[in-house]
Design a binder for these strands. Sequence first.
DNA 1: CCATTTATGTATTGAACGATACATAAATGG
DNA 2: CCATTTATGTATCGTTCAATACATAAATGG
Lengths: 206, 206
Amino acid sequence: MAERGRPRRFDRQAALDRAMEIFWERGYQAASMADLTEAMSINSPSLYAAFGSKEELYREAIAHFAATESDAILSPLREAKTARAAIEGYLLASAATFTRPGRPPGCMVVMSAVNAVGVGDETNRVLREMRAGSIDMIEDRLQRAVAAGELPAAFDPHAVASYYVTVQQGMSIQARDGASRPVLEMIARAAMAAWDALVLPRVAAA
Amino acid sequence: MAERGRPRRFDRQAALDRAMEIFWERGYQAASMADLTEAMSINSPSLYAAFGSKEELYREAIAHFAATESDAILSPLREAKTARAAIEGYLLASAATFTRPGRPPGCMVVMSAVNAVGVGDETNRVLREMRAGSIDMIEDRLQRAVAAGELPAAFDPHAVASYYVTVQQGMSIQARDGASRPVLEMIARAAMAAWDALVLPRVAAA
DNA sequence: CCATTTATGTATTGAACGATACATAAATGG
DNA sequence: CCATTTATGTATCGTTCAATACATAAATGG
């Protein structure tokens, strides 16, 4: 029951990685099939045979991004000992990965809020859920800190999570505009300056 | 010396306003000439006669945006009595204009950092300068507050300006993802929670 | 009244788009 | 050894893209 037929001559994962970079840099619509096939070093029939269509390739590229690029950003949320360290780690890891050499600046999923025009409804729903998922993960981490008594009961995890994700998304824009890692780290530290005040109740009130 | 020739049958400013909305919503490349001519209710020869090319129309749309949409956001920076009120007014005005009914969500110039792919170098340079200009305006306002003794000399206007512009750009992404005005205002207030700590020196240090 | 000027609507243009048809190549199964 | 299966490279497909040619309409100037 081995593989039948002529074997594929290219590395599917490597080609997907190249496609991810093109979509990451240009977005969905502005990445042409010619751009993709050139970056992947294959002809378009091979691309269609292996990935189905431009949009299916895009969806695989998003999944590949989530599987390979986002863990470095999210792991501090799981591993940091305190809620504050979790948030700070999240922002500092974002500063690092948003400016990683050899990769397009910023976050592909954040960019997709703006440059996934032309993509189908279902794909857009998935992307939106991935972005909302960041808020949920941070909110959960803060909620656990409240439950553990580390943060006061009147603390508003959703408001604070929304705020820090917003900062991170802004950092993605800044990275796209050329901000270096130290600049993004400076912004992250400025955002953390809000922490002590946010830990006190009354943040979300009108 | 009145106008020679057959008079234009459409309102140039109104048509430009429609074109701005299309570019604002979709970005440069994903906005097709068919989209534009339909929204502007003109045929493509009229568009080319009046605006020159798609990219020239885009540049006029950006200028139109700057002239009509951005003052509401920037005026607090000129008019607020204190530096803190200036920043807070900037963020709250952003929350309002990013969710204005009948307009695409978020800021067209912020979006252009991601969706102006395919535009010429010169146009991209103008857009980048507009985004950097926001930091400069806030930095100037803070610098004046330092000069006036309202803020301590060790205060870092550039770092704080970069931080608040980053928050505002993140709010633009959030708006694009459907965040309402109250949600954005909540985020703005969370960002302002950093103010007291930022006013103390040592923010930008490593 | 007619030459000139500018705008309009129809009908295309060549190029680039996403996607395939098809003949051939290279593997497995019996 | 040959039928079957899958991948490849060439050469397109029909569509949509941004941009125009051209004939006509509607204004001004003299």
